[in-house]
Amino acid sequence: MSEFAAKKQSDLGKEMSKSGRSVGSRLGTGLLYLILSILAVFQIYPLFWLFLFSLKTNQEVFSASPFSFPQDPQWGNYAKAWTQGHINLYFWNSVWYTVAAVVLTILFASFVTFAITRMYWKLNRLVLGLFMIGLMIPLHSTLIPLFSFFKNIGLIDNPLSIILSYTAFNLPLTIMILLGFYQTIPREIEEAAVIDGCSVHRIFFRIALPLTTPVIATTAIINMIYNWNEFVFVNTFINSDRWKTLTVGVNSFVGQYLTDWGAIGATLMISIIPILIAFIILSNRIVEGMAAGSVKG
């Protein structure tokens, strides 16, 4: 790693000397890269660890060092995860619950934030306050009342209960994050649009949404990760196997007395791949966001 840092440093050095910076500043940048790289190692290590973990036997999992390599890689853990963890069955449920909830959340949150920050009405702060309070309720207090609510409207063991819960519980957070961004959009833009005869819907879909692409991508990532890893709701509101999600597969390896850690590792490893891909695609959208919606310039 120090090699990597050193290389970076020299690369950077070249660039810096071109622009005629002092030695001190070069050292500073080198140090900066060193720190950034150390942080990077800290943050990427768990993925590597999880991979090793997924190939270990239960005995090795608790053996000496988390660094250690499995003696005899247990690829069978993956087969086990796939069949006994019912990944094949749960995978698509996870995907479509996540996607549906993310789309709904972002759409609703954008509507609300737009109405609160860009439109003129008296109760906007009160409504915002109502959403804010939604941020504060501890999840476990809601389980029993929510269960009886879904039971009364016949949504127990129905995927809608999951999608609606994810949407409702992520709305406050998403609105909060969007809020800071909507405030930075200059009013002149929509003033001009209104003068041009744009309707409100057009302003929302044609101006506000594209302008906020970076933050939409950001909230999409956050929402997606939350929904993907959630299991308390699924576990409580869903009874039949065909509606359960991947996280239930993970927990099915936690036993009454014995827990199959290797298979848990494998399930986690498999389940992280789609989210990793989605994340990389979306996080590129954050960067490209402005270029794509270059209304501002």
Binding site: Q84, G85, G249, S252, V254, G255, Q256, L258, T259, D260
Partner: peptide, 11 residues
């Protein structure tokens, strides 16, 4: 019951 196929295969 609480014996998932994964963790408690025999049960």
């Amino acid at each position: 019951h609480l014996w998932p196929e994964g963790s408690s295969n025999a049960q």
